[in-house]
Design a protein around this nucleic acid. Structure first.
Lengths: 351, 351
DNA sequence: TTGTATGCGTTATCAC
DNA sequence: GTGATAACGCATACAA
C-alpha cells in the first residue's frame, strides 16, 4: 500500500516500471536470506513461525509475485498444460476446454490454449510453440494430428492424451464408444418399429469424429436390419442452418424415412425447425448428440431422442489423467466414458 | 532421428527423459559457442550463412526446442497474454477467445486461459496465477472485476484491457455502445408502429452486460415514447430453454405487447420456438444480439430483427491493442466498435 | 562475425 | 532452522 509504485492513473499503465519485486527484495525487507523466503513460500512448515510471519508480512507489503519463469527454470516444470484444439469455434470443444481448465486450476495448473484454424491445424509448429512455452503435458483434441506431433511429444518424453478419440495407436485416449452411442439410438428406434432411417451428419472427409459417428450408425443399422439409403444420408457443415437445409433437402427427396438421426444437437435443432416449418410430422426425429447446455433441440419438435455425450467429463478426466502422470503415477486413462440415452418422447410405428 | 531418445512405445511416454536438448548441446554439435547458437535463432542475419547452416543443421538433428522459461527469464517477457474470462452463458466466450488467440498466434504470442467459475470470478488469486506465470499483458472479459485486480495490474505496470466493456474508469476498454445497439432495434420497431414492447434478458443482478443491455433498451423505449411495462420485462438465465419458458410466461400474462426484444440469440431462439409452439404470431419479435455462427434464431419464426454484436472483432482488437502496447506504442484501444442492424423481415403495425 | 562472461529469479544442496 | 552457493538455459554487452 504505502510502497505503491507511482504508476497508473486509471487509464492504462506505464510499460516500464521500476523493476519487479523479487525474492531478494522480500528477503532484504524481512532481514533474512533469499533461500528462506523461498522456503516460506513453498515449504512453510520447514521454517519457524516467527520468521515465517516476518517474511509473509514483507512479501505482502511489497506485493511480491513469484516469477514463474525463474521457478520453471529451476524446477524444470511449469505447472502448465497445453491444449491443442483444432477448430475451437462452433463445436463443443469450448465446453470441454472449460471443464478441463476448471479441473486444472483447482490443482494449481494453468491452461495454455492453442486453437489453430483449419489451415494451421496440421502444422507441427503450433505444438512446438506449446513446447517452447514449457508445458508439462498436452491434451490433444481429436485424433487428427500429424505424425510429427506424436514424434515430438514422444521425443520430449512429455505426457499427452488424445481427447474425444478412442482406439488410437498413437497414444492414450479419453473418449466414448461411437458404436455404443449409435446403438443406443438406433436400437431405440428399431424397437419402436422404425425401418427406414435418415442421417444428417458432419463432413466425414474433414472431421474424424463425424466419420466415426457415421460408422457407428451404419453398423447399428446393419445389425438391426434397418435401411439407410444413400439419398437419405446427408453430410454437411455443423450448425443450425445446415441442419435446416439438410432436412429440407431430405424432405424433397421423398425417401420414405420415418426417423432421422442427426450428427449433433445443432443439426438436430435445425432439422426439427425445418420439419416444423414444412408442417411435416416425422416420428422419431432425433439427435445423436446433445450438448450439455444447449439441449434446445428438445423444445422444437418432439419426438426426440438424444444420447448425451460426456463432453465435460472428457475434459475433467483429461485433467485427472495428465495430473496423475505428472505426479509420477503410471495411470491409465479411462478410454471409454459411459453414455446415457435420453428419451424425450417416442413415437412407435405400428403395423 | 539417429539421436532418438530410447523413449516411448506408442502408448504414452516415460516421464523422466535423459535431459532436454539445450543451446549448449547444439553448440557442441555445431562446434560453435552457445552465444552463436542463440543468435542464429533470434538474429539470423547477424551471423555468417556458413555457421548459420551448421547451427541450424545441428539444432534440427537434435530436435532442439528452446526453453521458454530461460528465455523469459533473460528477456523479462514471456510472449504470453493472459485472458481472464469469467464464465458467462451462451457461446460468445469461445468465439471471442478464439478470435483473440488466432490474432495473437499470428504474432507469435500464446494465450494463457483462465476461466474461473462464478465462485472464483471475484477472487484476485486467479489473476495472481496469471501474473506468476509471467503474462506480458492481460485481457479481462467484462468490467466486473474487483478493485484488487486493477491494483495488481497497475502495480505491476502490465498492460491490460477490458473487453466487452465501455466507459469504465478502471482502464482502457474495447466494446460497443449498448445504447446504440438498443436504439437500432427499438427505433426500427418504433418506426414500424410498435408501441408496446416486451423484453426478455439476462439476469441484471448477476451480469453486467445484461444490465447495460437492459438500460439501453429502457432508454431507447423512453426516447421513443414506447411502453415497456414491468410485467413484460423478464429476467432469466441465458439459454434456449430459458427463452422458451420466458416467452410462455409472457404470453400467459397477456401484456398486449406486439414486439419482444431478447437479450441474446439463445433467448430469442427459445422465445421464437415458444411462439411457434403456441401458434402465436407476434410481429417484430426479435433478438438484440446475434452471435456470429449461431444465428439459428432467424430460421425459427421470422419476423426477426437482429443487431450483430462484434464479438470476434473485440477479440481481434484486443490482440492488436495489447500487442501495440507491448511494442511500446502508446496506443488507444477502439472503445466503441461499429454495430449493424440486420432485418430478416419486418412487420409493421398499421392503424 | 564470433566467443566469453554475466545476469535473469528461483530452488536445491550443503554447510552451519 | 537458516544462510551461502551452485545450477537452471538463454540473451546480451563486451571483447576479440
Amino acid at each position: 500500500m504505502s510502497t505503491r509504485i507511482p504508476s497508473a492513473s486509471g487509464n492504462g499503465a506505464p510499460l516500464a516500471v521500476a523493476r519487479a519485486v523479487s525474492l531478494a527484495d522480500v528477503a532484504a525487507l524481512a532481514g533474512v536470506s533469499a533461500g528462506t523466503v523461498s522456503r516460506v513460500l513453498s515449504r512453510p512448515d520447514m521454517i519457524s513461525p516467527a520468521t515465517r510471519q516476518k517474511v509473509l508480512a514483507a512479501a505482502d507489503r511489497l506485493g511480491y509475485v513469484a516469477n514463474g519463469a525463474a521457478r520453471a527454470l529451476a524446477l524444470r516444470k511449469t505447472q502448465t498444460i497445453g491444449a491443442l484444439v483444432p477448430r475451437f469455434g462452433g463445436s463443443s470443444f469450448p465446453t470441454l476446454v472449460q471443464a478441463m481448465e476448471s479441473a486444472l486450476a483447482a490443482q494449481g495448473y494453468n491452461l495454455l490454449l492453442s486453437a489453430p484454424d483449419h489451415a494451421r491445424a496440421q502444422d507441427p509448429t503450433v505444438l512446438r510453440a506449446l513446447l517452447e512455452r514449457g508445458v508439462d503435458a498436452v491434451a490433444l483434441l481429436g485424433a487428427e494430428h500429424p505424425p510429427a506431433v506424436f514424434n515430438m511429444l514422444n521425443q520430449h518424453g512429455i505426457p499427452y492424451v488424445l481427447l474425444w478419440a478412442v482406439s488410437s495407436t498413437q497414444g492414450p485416449c479419453i473418449g466414448f464408444d461411437e458404436h455404443v452411442a449409435a446403438a443406443l439410438l438406433v436400437d431405440h428406434l428399431a424397437d419402436l418399429g422404425h425401418r427406414r432411417l435418415g442421417f444428417i451428419g458432419g463432413r466425414t472427409d474433414d472431421n474424424e469424429r463425424a466419420r466415426r459417428r457415421l460408422q457407428g450408425v451404419l453398423a447399428a443399422v446393419a445389425r438391426r436390419g434397418m435401411m439407410l439409403s444413400q439419398d437419405a444420408l446427408l453430410e454437411t457443415e455443423y450448425g443450425f442452418a445446415s441442419g435446416f437445409e439438410a432436412m429440407k433437402t431430405l424432405i424433397t427427396r421423398n425417401t420414405g424415412v420415418t426417423a432421422v438421426a442427426c450428427g449433433n444437437d445443432y443439426l438436430a435443432a435445425g432439422a426439427l425447425a425445418a420439419l416444423s416449418a414444412e408442417g411435416i410430422e416425422v416420428p422419431g426425429a432425433m439427435s445423436v448428440a446433445s450438448f450439455n447446455d444447449n439441449d434446445f433441440a428438445a423444445y422444437l419438435h418432439p419426438p426426440l431422442t438424444t444420447v448425451r455425450v460426456p463432453i465435460r467429463e472428457i475434459g475433467e478426466e483429461a485433467a485427472r489423467y495428465l495430473l496423475a502422470r505428472l505426479a509420477g503415477e503410471d495411470a491409465e486413462p479411462p478410454v471409454l466414458l459411459p453414455l446415457e440415452l435420453k428419451v424425450r418422447r417416442s413415437t412407435a410405428i405400428v403395423g
